[in-house]
């Protein structure tokens, strides 16, 4: 499954980049995120409750960041397991570009799912993932812009 999109965030690039590395911002933005802890500068551990069609499960997983291209681009890879519900693994490349006072965020993600999640939710996964991604960036963008207004 592949996802890609481009969104505009009303904040300068360095702020967007910082927010993307802030566990608190991410935790609030990721739909269903129950826990998000930074293990090191490039490693995160997360617990996320998800529902895809008839499958509902809490996924525990690890995310590794590659920040070599920061702040213009970075990539991440991760994998998570929801027990009998199945598992997911994948990665994303994120690119940030200045556009005046705003930032254009472009991402391309690739994910594979397995287990019951793939079997039962198969035909729902792409649309669910699209929806979750949209929701994430909506939340994220709201937080980053809000942060600007109040700071």
């Amino acid at each position: 499954m592949e996802l890609h999109d481009e969104i505009r965030i009303e904040a300068p690039k360095h702020e967007v980049y910082a927010a993307l590395n802030d566990p608190e911002v991410l935790k609030a933005a990721i739909p269903g995120c129950q826990e998000l802890n930074k293990v090191s500068d490039t490693e995160l551990e997360a617990k996320v409750a998800l529902k895809v069609g008839p499958v509902k499960a809490t996924f525990g997983g690890k995310v590794t960041l590659d920040t070599a291209g920061a702040p213009d681009r970075f990539s991440l890879t991760g994998e998570g397991s929801g027990g009998v519900a199945g598992f997911a693994k994948g990665g994303a490349d994120v690119e940030l570009r200045e556009d005046g006072n705003a930032t254009i965020l472009r991402y391309a993600a690739k994910a594979d799912v397995g287990g019951k999640l793939a079997m039962l939710g198969g035909r729902l996964i792409a649309s669910t993932a699209q929806k979750l991604a949209a929701q994430f960036f909506e939340n994220f963008s709201a937080q980053v812009s809000a942060g600007r207004e109040f700071s």
């Binding site: 594979d112 397995g114 793939a118 079997m119 039962l120 198969g122 035909r123």
Partner: peptide, 14 residues
């Protein structure tokens, strides 16, 4: 099956 070995047709929906 998909290439990961997931059964894509394990319910009567598919």
């Amino acid at each position: 099956y998909d290439e990961m070995g997931n059964v894509k047709t394990a319910t009567l929906m598919d």
